[in-house]
Measured scan of single mutants.
Amino acid sequence: MGFKLLSKLLVYLTASIMAIASPLAFSVDSSGEYPTVSEIPVGEVRLYQIADGVWSHIATQSFDGAVYPSNGLIVRDGDELLLIDTAWGAKNTAALLAEIEKQIGLPVTRAVSTHFHDDRVGGVDVLRAAGVATYASPSTRRLAEVEGNEIPTHSLEGLSSSGDAVRFGPVELFYPGAAHSTDNLIVYVPSASVLYGGCAIYELSRTSAGNVADADLAEWPTSIERIQQHYPEAQFVIPGHGLPGGLDLLKHTTNVVKAHTNRSVVE
């Protein structure tokens, strides 16, 4: 069995187990497998329904001669939608809004960016022009300005110390501490036991640490421990890039980060 097929099978099995364990909360999309990078042309966006009122959005972007996937989250909030992270750029984010209108038909009224990198804030200006209120932590807003990236308009308070959590509509926002970046936030959907790890969490097929220019490698494993301790009931975990899975993604990420750190020390 090929690795790609095995990865998709694991996603399907995880979703099936969740649907059985929580039949009222989960209505997993039966329309197909989780979209992969090879299936999404740059400039297009796919939506994948995880649970009743919960979707991931998947886009792709060219970077350094390669094409990478990027995940975000959409959560229903009454007759409105909360968006977590842009679709990595203005063109993708405009396509995301169009796809949401086509498939869901509810307005996106608020959006949260989970850290300051372009795959999370690139497209904020498109959201703002569409009347979406954009939010991020003060740290993310400051770092985005320093980096020359787009800056969300509103500040999220109460997320300055490791372990801080605040309720934001249908989700809980959690600051686990520094990891992929010093400002990275985690998003949890309690009604569906869905954990969105953003770039602080890796997919299972990833074996290298990737972009760690703004990471705190020493603190990252401790931050992941905080996530595990705060959300032990999480059933569906979405990484910032690639295929979702279960809580095993947290341990896998820790292993990859520690291996990278150990290699760096040896070198």
Rank of each mutant, 00 (worst) to 15 (best):
residue 254 T to L: 15
residue 263 R to S: 14
residue 59 A to E: 08
residue 141 R to N: 08
residue 116 F to N: 03
residue 40 I to G: 08
residue 194 V to M: 06
residue 219 E to F: 06
residue 109 T to G: 12
residue 157 E to M: 12
residue 254 T to I: 12
residue 95 A to R: 11
residue 140 T to V: 04
residue 46 R to C: 06
residue 100 I to S: 02
residue 137 S to L: 15
residue 260 H to N: 10
residue 237 V to R: 03
residue 235 Q to L: 09
residue 218 A to W: 11
residue 135 Y to W: 10
residue 62 S to M: 07
residue 88 W to D: 00
residue 229 Q to E: 13
residue 234 A to P: 08
residue 72 G to S: 04
residue 35 P to E: 08
residue 159 L to H: 06
residue 103 Q to F: 10
residue 212 V to C: 04
residue 133 A to E: 13
residue 82 L to P: 04
residue 233 E to N: 12
residue 100 I to Y: 04
residue 238 I to V: 09
residue 189 V to E: 02
residue 12 Y to N: 10
residue 68 Y to V: 10
residue 43 G to R: 06
residue 208 S to G: 10
residue 84 I to T: 01
residue 202 Y to V: 15
residue 37 V to P: 15
residue 117 H to Q: 04
residue 216 D to V: 10
residue 156 L to W: 03
residue 57 H to N: 03
residue 136 A to W: 05
residue 83 L to S: 01
residue 124 V to F: 06
residue 33 E to T: 09
residue 10 L to N: 15
residue 129 A to R: 11
residue 210 G to A: 06
residue 194 V to F: 01
residue 147 E to W: 15
residue 243 L to Q: 14
residue 193 S to Y: 14
residue 183 D to L: 02
residue 218 A to Y: 13
residue 52 D to I: 09
residue 236 F to D: 07
residue 166 V to P: 04
residue 252 H to G: 03
residue 175 Y to L: 02
residue 246 G to C: 04
residue 242 G to D: 06
residue 224 I to T: 05
residue 172 E to W: 01
residue 186 I to V: 13
residue 55 W to T: 04
residue 8 K to W: 15
residue 74 I to D: 02
residue 187 V to S: 01
residue 132 V to P: 00
residue 33 E to C: 07
residue 49 Q to L: 10
residue 38 S to P: 10
residue 259 A to W: 10
residue 32 G to P: 09
residue 27 S to A: 15
residue 12 Y to L: 09
residue 108 V to W: 02
residue 36 T to F: 10
residue 78 G to T: 08
residue 263 R to V: 13
residue 170 P to Q: 07
residue 37 V to M: 15
residue 221 P to W: 05
residue 39 E to T: 12
residue 114 T to D: 00
residue 46 R to P: 04
residue 151 I to M: 09
residue 9 L to N: 15
residue 46 R to A: 09
residue 266 V to Y: 15
residue 85 D to H: 04
residue 36 T to R: 12
residue 175 Y to Q: 01
residue 181 S to D: 00
residue 104 I to D: 00
residue 83 L to F: 02
residue 196 Y to D: 02
residue 218 A to K: 14
residue 45 V to S: 07
residue 181 S to K: 03
residue 52 D to T: 12
residue 53 G to Y: 07
residue 117 H to I: 00
residue 41 P to W: 07
residue 225 E to N: 09
residue 221 P to A: 09
residue 252 H to F: 04
residue 41 P to E: 14
residue 65 G to F: 06
residue 193 S to M: 12
residue 39 E to M: 12
residue 149 N to R: 15
residue 65 G to S: 10
residue 110 R to M: 09
residue 233 E to L: 11
residue 1 M to W: 06
residue 19 A to I: 15
residue 78 G to Y: 08
residue 133 A to S: 11
residue 43 G to L: 05
residue 165 A to G: 12
residue 116 F to M: 06
residue 120 R to K: 03
residue 42 V to L: 08
residue 96 L to A: 00
residue 77 D to T: 02
residue 25 A to T: 12
residue 4 K to L: 06
residue 178 A to V: 07
residue 249 L to D: 02
residue 73 L to G: 04
residue 260 H to P: 11
residue 263 R to G: 14
residue 230 H to F: 15
residue 148 G to E: 09
residue 76 R to M: 11
residue 132 V to D: 03
residue 68 Y to Q: 03
residue 266 V to R: 14
residue 47 L to P: 07
residue 27 S to Y: 09
residue 250 L to Y: 05
residue 70 S to Q: 03
residue 20 I to G: 14
residue 222 T to A: 12
residue 230 H to V: 11
residue 231 Y to R: 01
residue 78 G to E: 11
residue 103 Q to K: 14
residue 61 Q to H: 07
residue 143 L to E: 06
residue 88 W to R: 00
residue 98 A to V: 13
residue 35 P to Y: 10
residue 89 G to S: 05
residue 182 T to C: 05
residue 70 S to I: 03
residue 240 G to T: 01
residue 256 V to Q: 05
residue 27 S to F: 10
residue 71 N to P: 02
residue 220 W to E: 01
residue 67 V to I: 09
residue 242 G to F: 06
residue 266 V to F: 13
residue 149 N to Y: 11
residue 22 S to E: 14
residue 74 I to W: 02
residue 96 L to Y: 00
residue 180 H to K: 00
residue 263 R to T: 14
residue 51 A to D: 10
residue 91 K to P: 13
residue 118 D to P: 13
residue 175 Y to V: 03
residue 241 H to Q: 01
residue 85 D to Y: 00
residue 22 S to Y: 09
residue 172 E to D: 08
residue 119 D to W: 00
